[in-house]
C-alpha cells in the first residue's frame, strides 16, 4: 500500500500537472472574484470564507477524473484488481494521494489568497482548520465519483454532475465553520459536523467505491 502511495506521488511530481494546476486554478478563481463583485473590501471580507471554500472545492474537482482514469487506460487497474491488496485499500490510497497532491496544497495556499480577499484577521486560523478537516472528505467523495465513472466515455462531465451535489453538506459546514470563526462566533458545531462527515466518508465510501470499480472492470 505504501508502494502504491509512493508511486502515485512520484507520478504526480513527474507529470508536473499534479500540484501546480490545481493551485493555479485556485489562484485564478480567487483573483476573478473581485472583478465580479467589485473591489469593496467590506463585501470581499464578508464573502472571503465562502469564496475560498468554493475555489478549493472546484480546484479539487479538476483533478478527480485522473484518479483512476490513467490506471484504467494503461491496464494497471486490472492488474491491481488481481493483486493481493484489497480494492478498498487501493481506493483509500488513491484518495490519500489525491488529498496530498490536491487538497493539502490548497489548504496551505488558502491563507495567502485570503489576503487578496481581505479576510478578517480572525479568519485565517479557521479557514485553514476548516479546510484541513474538510478537504479529505472532498477527496474521498471525489474518489467515489471517479470510481463510478471510470469506464465511461465523457466521464469527466458526468463526474462533476454526480460529485457536486454530494459536496453540499461538506461545503455548508466548512464555510459555516470558517465564517463563524472569522466573525468571532462559536463554531464548534459545524467543525464537529465537518469532522464527522470526513470520518464517516473515510470509513464507508471506500467500500462503495471499490464495489463500483469491480463493476466497471467486469
Amino acid at each position: 500500500m505504501i508502494a502504491l502511495l509512493v508511486r502515485d506521488l512520484k507520478l504526480a511530481m513527474r507529470a508536473g500537472g499534479g500540484f501546480g494546476l490545481g493551485l493555479a486554478f485556485f489562484l485564478v478563481v480567487t483573483v476573478l472574484v473581485p472583478f465580479g463583485v467589485g473591489p469593496d473590501s467590506g463585501i470581499l471580507g464578508a464573502i472571503a470564507p465562502g469564496i475560498l471554500w468554493i475555489g478549493a472545492l472546484l480546484a479539487c474537482l479538476l483533478s478527480l477524473d485522473r484518479i483512476f482514469q490513467l490506471d484504467y487506460e494503461d491496464g494497471s487497474l486490472d492488474l491491481l484488481a488481481t493483486a493481493p491488496i484489497p480494492m478498498e485499500s487501493v481506493v483509500l490510497v488513491k484518495a490519500l494521494a489525491h488529498w496530498l497532491t490536491s487538497g493539502l496544497p490548497l489548504v496551505l495556499a488558502a491563507p495567502v489568497l485570503g489576503v487578496l480577499l481581505n479576510l478578517p484577521a480572525g479568519g485565517y486560523l479557521w479557514i485553514v482548520v476548516s479546510l484541513l478537516i474538510g478537504t479529505p472528505a472532498l477527496s474521498v467523495i471525489g474518489t467515489f465519483g471517479a470510481a463510478i465513472t471510470v469506464g465511461l466515455r465523457r466521464g469527466g462531465l458526468l463526474l462533476s454532475l454526480l460529485v457536486l451535489p454530494l459536496y453540499v453538506p461538506v461545503l455548508i459546514f466548512g464555510t459555516e465553520a470558517a465564517r463563524r470563526g472569522a466573525e468571532g462566533l462559536a463554531n464548534t458545531t459545524p467543525l464537529l459536523m465537518l469532522a464527522g462527515i470526513s470520518a464517516g466518508v473515510l470509513a464507508l465510501l471506500p467500500f462503495a467505491a471499490a464495489a463500483a470499480i469491480r463493476v466497471n472492470l467486469r
Binding site: I148, P165, L166, V168, P169, P190, L205, A212, R218
Partner: peptide, 26 residues
C-alpha cells in the same frame, strides 16, 4: 453495469440527501 452503478449511487446519494437536508436546516 448500469444497474449496479446506479444502485450504489442511489444508496450513497440517499445518505448524502439526508445529510444535506440536515446541513441546509443548520
Amino acid at each position: 453495469t448500469a444497474a449496479d452503478l446506479t444502485s450504489v449511487l442511489c444508496l450513497v446519494g440517499s445518505v448524502f440527501a439526508v445529510l444535506s437536508r440536515y446541513a441546509v436546516n443548520f
